[in-house]
Nucleic acid binder design. Structure first.
Lengths: 259, 259
DNA sequence: TAACACGGTTCAAATAATGAACCACTTACC
DNA sequence: GGTAAGTGGTTCATTATTTGAACCGTGTTA
């Protein structure tokens, strides 16, 4: 059901590593017939969500995406302010930052600020859905977000990404209990080898987390000397961004993060 | 032809002043049947381009817009860098800035940075198409953009917005000749009463303008003392943004803007 | 030269979109 | 307290649009 949806789903094919795609490849990846894929692409192009490179004939995400994002910012303000705070924090700690938001029942990347300080950096794909069991953001959301996330743990099998990925619901719950006490979550290569993630919650109006702010560090820089700097930044971002989105922190939430 | 396109066109109903719309109103505004509108909205919602407020039942642009904008930034980088340069210029001159890009054959707003210095400010709607005859950006594009824009002047009647709007093709061409010599364009209330616009071109690789950068000033602050500051900022933005987008300025382009 | 992959087109067949009428509910008004 | 008009949302027979196998012309590779 829904040709419009099928057309839109083609947009999901584009990603960080696959920014330009040709017709045949789109047809293959989407499973749609080449003719239908083309007609959909034409429709999306007319609206501006798709753009075709006249030389290479490949397709990319179009400029309408920016226009819609600006409208989204009007409807649900805050993200632009958040980006600025993240930018400042990036310059301070020198690492890449991600802001994720809970949309419907999945955790999605909303803002990415990559570090300009190091050439070895963590680069996160904005089109990826954040796995709740394998990332610092996901675990953090389990700890401070709506409770249905935790109860869903027992119903669905959790995907494994690396050797360090937590997949057993009971082990995850143990970890979540620790996170609740600490106020922040970490993931040491449990999503991708060599990537250390540190995340803190952003709370909404009812003291339930609506998203997370996280700092991603390559293992070579994830030393114990740098941890206090990262945690300090994370803590103040958690507070600032909660305020930025008009939320409120629970009284029980720690005002300082300890390693 | 194209149900997908019809669905997408509903997104165009949202604007700066109409950020949340109910089903019946959407049906009325779009001319679609209520049932059809609802099914389209559901499809858009499933993709995330539309979000429904559970309380009021109204619809808004959804979070997928942000995800797509991030992907667009990967495919066609530069806008984020441009935003930062504009932000700096905004703090410098204290006025709102707009970056427009020529998409297909219309001029569209790509980045808006509103002033944080004054409560009386010019606020531009990112969903609006920029009229080529009435705005500083439009006139600037006529002067430095692809030539088909100029030749189209004689074919289509130009819309009138205020008493000061130029609609006669010959008068417009005279103005464009002046702009070409000066390097910058202005519009004194020719689009909206009380708004003074100043624009300079952003050049592409072939020394043809691919967009414009403009500063919008409310009439009360559009004094002759402030003009040099505005022009200086505009000139350096024109240069910086041309470089930012990998373009090249024509040798004949003035290195200084004079009132 | 032949084989293959590319982007794009065609048109009969099949599927999915459509819309008038309807429901349940809330608000406003006499 | 009754009614009229608004809202969001549903139903289902009718209709029109989407669909896809085969096809074309071109460019690349072996």
């Amino acid at each position: 059901m829904g040709t419009a949806l099928n057309a839109l789903k083609m947009l999901d094919l584009f990603s960080n590593s696959l920014a330009e795609i040709g017709l045949s490849q789109i047809s293959r990846l989407s499973g749609l017939n080449k003719a239908t894929a083309l007609r959909h692409l034409r429709a999306l192009e007319e609206f501006g969500l798709i753009e075709q490179n006249p030389q290479t004939k490949t397709y990319t995400i179009g400029p309408a995406a920016l226009r819609l994002a600006a409208l989204r910012e009007i409807a649900k303000p805050g993200l632009e302010g958040a980006r600025q705070k993240m930018q400042a924090a990036m310059l301070d700690v020198g690492e890449s930052l991600h802001l994720t938001l809970l949309e419907k029942d999945t955790l999605q990347t909303a803002v990415v600020v990559e570090t300009t300080q190091h050439s070895v950096r963590v680069s996160l794909d904005p089109s990826e859905v954040i796995p709740i069991n394998a990332t610092a953001s996901g675990l953090c959301m389990l700890g401070f977000g709506p409770s249905f996330l935790l109860s869903r743990l027992d119903q669905e099998e959790q995907e494994r990404f690396t050797d360090a990925t937590l997949t057993d619901p009971d082990l995850i719950k143990e970890k979540v209990a620790l996170i609740r006490r600490a106020g922040w979550a970490n993931s040491n290569g449990s999503y991708e080898e060599g990537v250390f993630g540190f995340a803190a919650p952003i709370f909404g109006i009812s003291q339930v987390a609506l998203g997370t702010i996280s700092i991603a560090v390559p293992d070579i820089r994830a030393t114990s000397e740098r941890l206090p700097v990262i945690l300090k930044s994370l803590q103040s971002l958690s507070r600032d961004l909660t305020a930025n989105f008009g939320g409120q922190m629970p009284e029980t939430f720690p005002t300082e993060f300890h390693p």
